[in-house]
């Protein structure tokens, strides 16, 4: 069992402008947390590091469950990231929007599913890689 000792910490109030809150307590101590105030964690900003070139899409189907992407998940698709072999991408195949893993096999590029029972698609003139999936978001309870 670890024991916990409380010490008196020498404390010197410093006059400094608070960024977020104005402490108007007329007497007493300024909040010791005031100087260390930071913005709340913004998961959106972490998921979407390049908002001007990123688009959110909703996944429908099960062909990428092997990559950990499920039906109903939200993905962040970047159009500024350079697609590389090994990336999960959104591609337009004959005008339909589909998500697969981009793989180089020999001379050719393929769109490869990650679940049993789905076919790989060869990248040809009817296929356009639209963007790279850079992040995934899922809620377990609404």
């Amino acid at each position: 069992m670890t024991s916990l000792t409380l010490h008196d910490v020498p404390f010197e109030p410093i006059a400094r402008e608070a960024r977020l809150f104005v402490c108007t307590t007329p007497a007493g101590f300024p909040s010791p947390a005031q100087d260390d105030m930071e913005e709340p964690i913004d998961l959106g900003a972490w998921l979407i590091d390049h908002p001007a070139a990123s688009y959110i899409m909703r996944v429908s189907g099960h062909s990428m469950t092997g990559a950990g992407i499920n039906d109903g998940d939200l993905v962040v698709v970047s159009r500024s990231a350079e697609p590389r072999s090994g990336d999960i991408v959104v591609a337009m195949v004959h005008g339909d929007r589909t998500m697969k893993r981009l793989r180089r096999r020999g001379e050719r590029l393929w769109l490869v599913p990650e679940a049993e029972g789905y076919d790989a698609i060869q990248v040809d003139e009817h296929v356009e890689v639209w963007g790279v999936v850079v992040a995934l978001a899922r809620r377990y309870r609404a």
Binding site: V59, G61, S63, T65, D71, L74, D96, R97, T98, M99
Partner: peptide, 15 residues
Amino acid sequence: AWTTRLADVPVVAAG
């Protein structure tokens, strides 16, 4: 509102 409303974002088929 494809790009600004979560309920409206494009659907990508994993099929």
